[in-house]
Design a protein around this nucleic acid. Structure first.
Lengths: 140, 140
DNA sequence: GTGCACCTTCCCATAATTGGAAGGTCAAGC
DNA sequence: GCTTGACCTTCCAATTATGGGAAGGTGCAC
């Protein structure tokens, strides 16, 4: 099948398939006489694997490692588990960062009247002079 | 003061200050006779504003808008509030995405033995054939 | 006057994806 | 046979925010 069909079947855009080939994530497969790339169902399967790993937020480098493990019948599941666990804790760290930001933002938004007047605790917070002397937010 | 001092005082690297100038986020200020950029405390204050907005995850475009509002004495606080609220809901959406990913990953990691054998529900999940016939995860 | 720390501009790299240009290929319909 | 449109090809560039580094100028201290 052509790249467009493989893209459709795998959920990976043709553009991305070519890119993954260029960076060596997937192997450069067969070409037809017209120089068109040719894919079979195993290629599509591999692209689906990539797609799902992307959906779980794995980086392309991590996916490369996952693919290597997937292809290796003698792999040890602990390798996969460690990779996934590292990724999970990375995600959890990012969630924690976002949680902190969301908390601050939420308090700021709540403390702002949001009317036609210029006074705004949000800008006060961003523009406060160094040193925590003033406390622009005090909504509890 | 020189750019290095302003960087130190504001928490924005000299590299980034030049970049922010290049993209018009901060105005191209005065230069000394030796062509060195010259900053005063108001410039540093503005950089601190940017720094704090960055810490809250605002994009440079959003910061540009925030700066414009900050400088405008006739602003309406509702404009700031709306901008911040939009950003907040964006953050919350990203958190939700991460939460979903973390949930799946967590179940997968838990379901994997993580030993020397090759069997791995994580790889099974990523490489499963389309259609939800098989259910590689069943840890409840 | 030599060295070191600072400054300048310019180019490049990252990560993942997309957009687009310029051109080749193929099948359908007239 | 020729056109049209939908494919495909490669290559270049933009995105976002930040950093690295080269090549060269400046200033101060010893």
């Amino acid at each position: 099948m052509q790249i467009g069909t493989a893209a459709e079947a795998s959920g990976v855009s043709a553009k991305m398939i070519r890119h993954y080939e260029a960076i060596g994530l997937v192997t450069s497969g067969a070409r037809r006489t017209n120089n068109y790339r040719d894919y079979d169902c195993r290629d599509v399967h591999e692209l689906q694997f990539i797609r799902r790993a992307r959906d779980l937020g794995f980086s392309l480098q991590e996916i490369k490692n996952l693919l290597d493990l997937w292809r290796d019948d003698t792999r040890q599941s602990t390798s996969v588990r460690e990779l996934a666990a590292r990724h999970l804790s990375d995600i959890e760290r990012r969630m924690e960062d976002l949680r902190a930001i969301a908390g601050t933002l939420s308090r700021l938004v709540d403390s702002c009247e949001g009317d036609t007047r210029p006074d705004c605790p949000i800008l006060d917070h961003l523009g406060r002079r160094a040193g925590k002397a003033r406390r622009p937010i005090d909504v509890e």
